[in-house]
Design a protein around this nucleic acid. Structure first.
Length: 425
RNA sequence: GUGGGUGUAGCUCAGUUGGUUAGAGCGUCAGGUUGUGGCCCUGAAGGUCGUGGGUUCGAGACCCAUCACCCACCCCA
């Protein structure tokens, strides 16, 4: 085989797009209910935007970006996530000056050059929402509620919401100092993979999967011990609001997000049905990002969720009926005259809104019938030369086997009501 | 980047301790007499056994290399 997909990309086949459309419809529906409007931003941006926005110290920026130089010697990067782009757009288009609160959502592909595994691709799809302009912790809860609602509407009930507050840079600085005092003396005991985190970002030690690291961290000062009144109050309001909304969560003091821009609320939604990459959705508050990227100081919250991962979970719980609409009619004719008439009938039916197909492979009537079955067509319409002058043709209901001779108008009427309403199970 | 696993027909897989013309199921195509599908029956097409070397009288099976995919580490959605 000469050409193949590049590593970490997938082809979404015609047989699979149905479930994608289904998921997208759920997302758009939920977003509409919460009054988030869709925003479409470019899939590539100046490299600098991501470097500044996501953080120079992050893995995403350091080793996972698809970066190239364009014809004008500009450094361009395929977006590894969308928040930086949304914020750039928010500033560039002065959205904050047109309305005090901006609620937007997006759906689309992201690119990260990681080693592929279950639930991890190099081109993958995320949907997410951002609310810019409010510091009210209750909108943090709304963001979480939106993400949860999509899962619910997908039929997913097995998930855990982990919640934390990563406070403010001031609080983190104080904590970091104490944490380093605790960790430094025993630094050499840490596993190699974690040891380098001590200098880079000691907070990250807490979300290590390694047993040894967790043991060494016993008794280490936790970030929450350093919360100031405001951070604590906001966090309490988020939790209280979630409870009020009936969203179960688990406080997880070890939850640290991988992107630098988070402040205060941080959350992650995980599913036990995924593999090692068990995060379905993650997000939080990023009050400093807009200013960091050159805008006026603007509080903001958001989340991003993985669509492939959501679909993996849907598969796992046996959600296979996506309410795809069957073909209404397959028109069958064999001779030249019959095929001409079939084409005309197909046009008329299509004009009336029916979904219609017919044979273009010079196949026998029997083969055409088989094709009609394969297509799951509701009706087969036979065109026989003898019937052409009378303008009445035989319409067969393929489910019941009933067959009657009808005019075009009668045909259109008799297949007006779909057999199934197309509602997914 | 580091491990482990797997590569045989379009798909899912069998192929005994290396031994003749490499198999099955599903799918595809054509038939099963009188203008009608699904089920069933018959038949057909379809494979450089991932690729390149090597060992051997003989390799789909063994060895080396290489590529691809999967899973895990790492990180994250």
């Amino acid at each position: 085989m000469k050409y193949q997909r590049i590593k970490g990309t997938v082809d979404i086949l015609p047989s699979e797009t149905g479930k994608w459309i289904y998921l997208e419809e759920i997302i758009r529906n939920v977003m509409a209910r919460f009054n988030y409007k869709e925003i479409r931003v470019p899939m590539f941006e100046a490299t600098e935007l991501f470097a500044r926005g996501i953080g120079e110290g992050t893995d995403i920026v350091n080793k996972e970006m698809y970066t190239f130089t364009d014809q004008g010697s500009r450094s361009i990067t395929l977006r590894p996530e969308a928040t930086a782009s949304v914020v750039r757009c928010y500033i560039e288009e002065s959205l904050g000056k047109k309305a005090p609160l901006t609620k937007v959502y997006y759906i689309g592909p992201m690119f990260r050059q990681e080693k592929p595994q279950k639930g991890r691709q190099r081109q993958f799809h995320q949907f997410g929402a951002e609310a810019l302009g409010s510091a009210d912790p209750r909108i943090d809860a709304e963001i979480i509620a939106v993400s949860v609602q999509v899962l619910k509407d997908c039929g997913i009930n097995q998930y855990e919401v982990a919640l934390n507050s990563v406070a403010t840079p001031q609080v983190r600085a104080k904590h970091r100092e104490k944490l380093l005092e605790f960790v430094r003396p025993i630094a050499s005991q840490f596993p190699e993979v974690d040891r380098e985190k001590i200098d880079r970002n000691p907070l990250r030690l807490f979300d290590s999967k390694l047993e040894l690291t967790q043991q060494l961290l016993q008794g280490a000062p936790l970030l929450e011990e350093f919360y100031d009144d405001e951070v604590r109050r906001d966090f309490d309001i988020v939790k209280e609001t979630l409870t009020r909304l009936g969203i179960p969560y688990a406080s997880d003091p070890r939850l640290v997000r991988g992107l630098d821009y988070y402040t205060r609320t941080a959350f992650e939604i995980r599913s036990p049905l995924l593999g090692a990459q068990d995060s379905l959705s993650g997000g939080g508050r990023y009050d400093l990002l807009v200013e960091e990227l050159g805008g006026d100081p603007t509080p903001a919250v958001g989340f991003a969720a993985g669509m492939e991962r959501t679909l993996i979970v849907m598969e796992a719980i046996g959600k296979s009926d996506y309410g795809e609409k069957p073909l209404d009619v397959f028109v069958i004719g064999e001779s030249e005259a019959e095929r001409k008439q079939a084409l005309l009938l197909a046009k008329q039916l299509r004009d009336s809104g029916k979904t219609v197909d017919l044979d273009y492979l010079a196949r026998s009537q029997k083969a055409q019938m088989k094709e009609a079955s394969r297509q799951n067509a509701r009706f087969a319409l036979f065109v026989f030369a003898d019937d052409i002058p009378g303008g009445r043709f035989q319409l067969k209901n393929l489910a019941s086997g009933d067959q009657q001779t009808l005019s075009v108008d009668e045909i259109i009427k008799s297949i007006k009501f779909p057999a199934s309403s197309g509602s997914p199970s």
